[in-house]
Design a protein around this nucleic acid. Structure first.
Lengths: 190, 190
DNA sequence: TCCTTCTATGCAACTCGTTGCATAGCAAGC
DNA sequence: GCTTGCTATGCAACGAGTTGCATAGAAGGA
């Protein structure tokens, strides 16, 4: 399980309330990890009980108070220990792949619209990533003085993960094009 | 949930016992869907109760008897209905991406070995896929007579899914190369 | 004024998925 | 004779994740 660790990383990047974390999980972090607000609140409570995070009540104007969490020493230690622990390469779950193989026992051409829909979703996400990349990762880079110029690890690694997301979406779009071409060969009649 | 549907597809391709299904889920189907034998036995029992599959006791020599399942009419109907139902584009879960972003708050270079390990796992899987492709999807294709020659939908779609797996592994290997280059830039000292 | 939407947190119930363990027959090697 | 390993099925317990619902203040539009 790594929801705790994903939350720790997110809180290290910037302290937040459960609600704000949930929105981050709908956005940037959600690109490689999803979680509902329910899960987040439950896990945050457990993490607070375990002393991984500190909570601080923040009164707000014009909206309900929030509890802002930040990472405590124990949380940092837990993250570090997890980082040094090897994990198994992820196992994949692709509903769409099941559908594509299943289509052989139904009408393959009926799947075309569905695959097109998914391709569009991946195109949208790709556009979103590319916009984020242009916004956050272009312009003045690290000072070009010495070869050993200090690099901002946080920023560099966020960019590396984003490049992974971009590569993934491009791969998916290409593959779905391939699938559509395969489906088209079965012709309208059948 | 689509474990039921993955099982239906697998049983349509070839009837099997729970044990055999579990092994398939470790192999070809496992490339895009994983399941333990526990899950499979439980779901199979439910599917049998619901009339989706028929069970048949098969006595064997030199090994325990097995229960061979095949898809019933109700199961075919359930699969067809699911195939016509739109599904949400999958949400991703990438432990490794969490680790990479988290490495910014620890020692980034300590992650190099882990990333290399994952890259090797993806290389192994790619080699496995390519071998499977060479074995099952080369040689005599559909008769090249007419443009409208009858295609074997099952085989064509299995191949399309396999091509997806190959594209995925290639993408991952390239991305992990990219990540390693990024990590290397932080240098041995820190 | 009422209705909807947004921020913000949370409980309860349920399903899904994993882990550990148990059973049982047979084969192969030490 | 004993252990190990493979086929084959299954229970029990737990942990992870989802869905539905509840509360509550404030903003904004019909």
């Amino acid at each position: 399980m790594a929801l705790e660790h994903a939350i720790l990383v997110s809180l290290l990047e910037k302290p937040a309330s459960g609600y704000e974390l949930a929105r981050r999980f709908d956005r940037s972090i959600g690109y490689f990890w999803t979680a509902t607000h329910q899960q987040i609140y439950r896990v945050l409570k457990r993490m607070e009980d375990d002393g991984w995070v500190d909570a601080r009540d923040v009164p707000q104007q014009g909206r309900p108070d929030k509890k802002e969490y930040s990472v405590a020493d124990l949380g940092r230690a837990a993250l570090s220990s997890w980082l040094h622990d090897p994990i198994e390469p992820e196992s994949v779950r692709h509903d769409l792949a099941v559908k594509i193989r299943g289509a052989a026992f139904d009408d393959p051409t009926a799947l075309i619209r569905e695959v097109e829909r998914h391709r569009q979703a991946h195109r949208d996400r790709l556009a979103h990533y590319l916009a984020g990349q242009a916004r956050d990762f272009t312009g003045p880079k690290a000072p070009t003085a010495g070869a050993q110029a200090p690099l901002d690890a946080e920023r560099e690694l966020q960019h590396a993960v984003l490049r992974g997301g971009i590569a993934y979406e491009r791969m998916m779009i290409d593959w779905l094009d391939d699938v559509l071409a395969t489906l088209a060969r079965f012709g309208p009649g059948r």
